[in-house]
Amino acid sequence: MNIFRLAGDMTHLLSIIVLLLKIYATKSCSGISLKTQELYALVFLARYLDLFTDFISVYNTIMKVVFIASSLAIVWCMRLHPLVKRSYDKELDTFRHYFLIGGTFVLALVLNEKFTLQEILWAFSIYLEAVAILPQLVLLQRSGNVDNLTGQYVFFLGAYRAFYILNWIYRYLTEPRFTRWIACVSGIVQTGIYADFFYYYFISWKNNSKLKLPA
């Protein structure tokens, strides 16, 4: 574990806490893409299959349980909670995310570290995570003004993988044969997808104005 990876995991945890806070405090999920939340639940389920078979550390196990439980709880909340589900922007959240699932799964069949179910699902979860934010970014562009908590949620979500890139650079420099091409390349693409959001988020912060993404 290094400071970059710890910062990344804590930022990721913070993004989930901000999202839970937004939904719990406002009893609303307006501006949140259910499709992105479903993709994240799939990412964690596909990636943490080794939860019960490979023990890495107490920290690793606890974080995996927290990520799986929170992502499923958010999907449940947006689909079934009587009060919250009414505020879901169903007509705005129209990104065809099944193409993202299919495309990344095929890519994982072709590009993986080993042709085993667990490795294919791990690569699938890495590729899917890279594009999972797309329905959310599209929804933000369509819904015009973005409420603060939603903006912070997306910002921390993008920032966490940027910390992981620093972690991979650090591990590459300090560990003799450290190479994680699938995670590294996918992580760079993932962080790149947030580039325009980061730009508009910075502008809104500098001008102290409401975050607005151009349609």
């Binding site: 990721h12 690793n60 570290e113 791990w122």
Partner: peptide, 10 residues
């Protein structure tokens, strides 16, 4: 065959 990388990251 070659072993895959250890999945020690979240």
């Amino acid at each position: 065959g070659h072993s895959s990388s250890p999945k020690d990251e979240l």
